[in-house]
Amino acid sequence: MQQEIIIAGFGGQGILSAGRLLAYAGMLENKNVSWLPSYGPEMRGGTANCHVIISDEPVGSPILNSATALVVMNGPSLEKFEGMIVKGGVIITDSSLVDKSPKRTDVDVFEIPATKMASDMGNLTFANIILLGKLIGKTGIVSKESFAEALKKVLPEKKHNLIPEEMKALEDGMNY
């Protein structure tokens, strides 16, 4: 079993860190994982994306030509990547920021106003976590517990006080 996820949006939305959390959680479940960011000038210019693989087998290429799931936080990224999702895969969009719906009809689509929900929670940086909540809830790619553990590993100690809220955001996403 191999799950291939593309997370994409603008720089500053926590795109890369969302991918990293997911990969870390996978690793904590003893799966084989890889995380590959887009790098270089385009990062500074605005768009950011990362490829995450979580697999029972050793990971071959960390570069994805197709993916089982897509999480997008801006319109251009939806356009750019929706064609890469396999039939029966999952597309999750932040509908607060992506005004168009995916054209695909052969995948499961979830449109979640994550930025609006995060804003209501008082912390815009939770939007990516809300979207991951839906991904985890829908695909079971990693467990909630592993995700909580990954937060501890990835966040610096001084931000550990945020973990309960982050987990709440994750659950809000799952339940949306």
Binding site: M27, W35, Y39
Partner: peptide
């Protein structure tokens, strides 16, 4: 190469 340098793995 750029992939190896940039990617994260266990």
């Amino acid at each position: 190469d750029g992939i190896l340098g940039q990617m994260m793995e266990a």
